[in-house]
């Protein structure tokens, strides 16, 4: 707030929010695209993360190494680089024509899968060993134990950090604007250049992201409470 006052004193900038009004439907469509990308990418990330976590914990060394390689690589490379690489690199190297939307979803999902793998692994390892042993003495196979005893509990433990990752996803998805997917951020960029009112456009975009993430986070904590198991 104080910096805004300072700006007004130093450079008498007059906010003109009304230039945004004609673009409100475009912003709304952009927000919808942001949610679409985020939800699909989060699902991709959850599936990949679960598979990678199981591979990481498997008895087979090859699978472990593959999982560790995947997790290290995509946590170590900047998301922006991954996105650009998926969009341009994959089509150059393999001749596959990705739409910007699918390249964005793939890059986000694969990167988030690397983080989610560690979340799932922590959840699985948090289950007391006695659960596994009791299930073993009842004659369940390792896979049945994972499916019916360990994962249902581990997923509930992982629910809060998964929710967090979705909140981050909503914001990180803004990077796909550089692939020219018209998400909320991209609409902000277009409006900024159309109106020469970048400050208003980006401030508005920031406020919308803020409310979207806060509302989603509150909703998710309700879900968490619904699924929590007491021990």
């Amino acid at each position: 707030m104080s910096s805004l006052v300072f700006l007004q004193v130093a450079t008498p900038y007059t906010f003109r929010w009304n230039v945004l009004i004609p673009y409100l439907p475009a912003f709304a469509r952009g927000l919808l695209v942001t949610f679409q990308v985020s939800i699909v990418a989060e699902i991709v990330g959850i599936v990949l993360g679960l598979v990678a976590a199981l591979a990481r914990l498997s008895r087979w060394g090859g699978l472990q190494l593959a999982a560790i390689g995947y997790i290290d690589f995509f946590r170590g490379v900047p998301l922006l680089a991954t996105l650009v690489w998926f969009y341009y690199g994959v089509s150059l190297l393999f001749g596959i024509n990705f739409t910007a939307f699918s390249a964005g979803v793939a890059g986000l999902g694969i990167t988030y899968g690397a983080y989610l793998a560690e979340i799932f692994r922590a959840g699985i390892q948090a289950i007391p060993r006695g659960q596994n042993e009791a299930a073993h003495t009842l004659g369940l196979s390792s896979w049945q134990i994972m499916q019916h005893v360990i994962l249902p509990q581990a997923v509930r433990i992982a629910l809060p950090p998964i929710g967090n990752s979705f909140v981050s996803m909503l914001k990180d998805s803004s990077l796909i604007a550089v692939l020219a997917v018209t998400d909320l951020m991209r609409v902000g960029m277009i409006v900024a250049s159309d109106t020469f009112r970048a400050f208003e456009a980006y401030t508005f975009v920031a406020v919308v992201y803020y409310f979207a993430t806060v509302i989603v986070a509150r909703g998710l904590s309700l879900v968490e409470r619904r699924f929590a198991i007491s021990r």
């Binding site: 006695g130 659960q131 042993e133 009791a134 003495t137 009842l138 005893v149 509990q153 198991i229 021990r231």
Partner: peptide, 12 residues
Amino acid sequence: GMVFQQFNLFPH
């Protein structure tokens, strides 16, 4: 069959 000190019921 085995019964444990810590019960080990499945809490879910």
